[in-house]
Amino acid sequence: MATSIELHKIVKSYGDVKVVHGIDLTINPGEFTVFVGPSGCGKSTLLRMIAGLEPITGGDLLIDGERMNEVPAARRGIAMVFQSYALYPHMNVYQNLAFGLETAKMPKAEIAERVAKAAAILKIEPLLQRKPKQLSGGQRQRVAIGRAIVREPRIFLFDEPLSNLDAELRVQMRVEIAKLHNDLGNTMIYVTHDQVEAMTMADKIVVLRAGVIEQVGAPLELYNSPRNLFVAGFIGSPKMNFLTASADGNRVNVAGGSIDLARPVAGATTLGVRPEHITLTEGSGVKLADVRVDLVESLGGQTVVYATTADNQPINIVLEGQRDVTLGSTIAAHIDPARLHLFNASGDVV
């Protein structure tokens, strides 16, 4: 049965320096939760506190309702896949997988059975007698995941496990981890700074910045309704465009023009618009601004236009398909007003 995790006012300090500032979070049984945020935001520290590798300075960590703050890592029913794989270099793959079970003094027959099962799931049976140095990056990653699987933990933790794989392998492993979650149904927490990984894998995304949760929600919820400028800029690729704006009743003035909205937007100072929501045809919305084309990237399936507004603000546009956009020309950018995001001076959504 899957396991729930609750964090109540979790704090982490190193001496006088507070790095995690009272995190409150509930992870439901079987949920795939992704902690995402820039470097130094505290996502790995939070994960390590859940794992038991880092002492919790304040607050409570509950696993299935039981307080775990002082429980040693091995007794929390957690397995972790490290960013660096952390395979034991002097042991072969079989020994790496079996080591935790041997430490738990499990009978040899059962160890063999569990290793065989994990190896079959991850398709690493032919590698069992090899040493880690004889494996490729992807194979090592599989073994690291296998080492977690054999322990049949309640919770899986992944600390940026794909950050060292090449782009193709990363996509492949991403799919495999998602499949693994579907097959096993365990509660999983995955740390990454790659928002694409977060969007594609998560049931729930937790966006962190400077030790504070900025927003928690389903991937599309964060994409469609970011709570503030930081989340709006962090979620989505390419990044959301931000233009300086001013509000006047139901009207927002931006890039030398203005857009009428269905609601009052008092206090808005920044207008956010995703590159993929901008079009060049009038029928699909209201005119946002005339922009000068600085650079065009034709990717085959998409055309990316890097442009500048009349008041010299950069704006990126992603157009579907292969489009003929002339470099240096001025084009009219259009937007569906429902897809605009407005933020006040403190960065919160209006």
Binding site: A74, Y88, H90
Partner: peptide, 27 residues
Amino acid sequence: LPKELDEAAQMDGCSPWRIYWKIILPL
């Protein structure tokens, strides 16, 4: 030696003595 090896061993249920004997010494 990478600290993650100790941490992985810790997650595997190793005491400091077992980490020393089984992980650190052989390496």
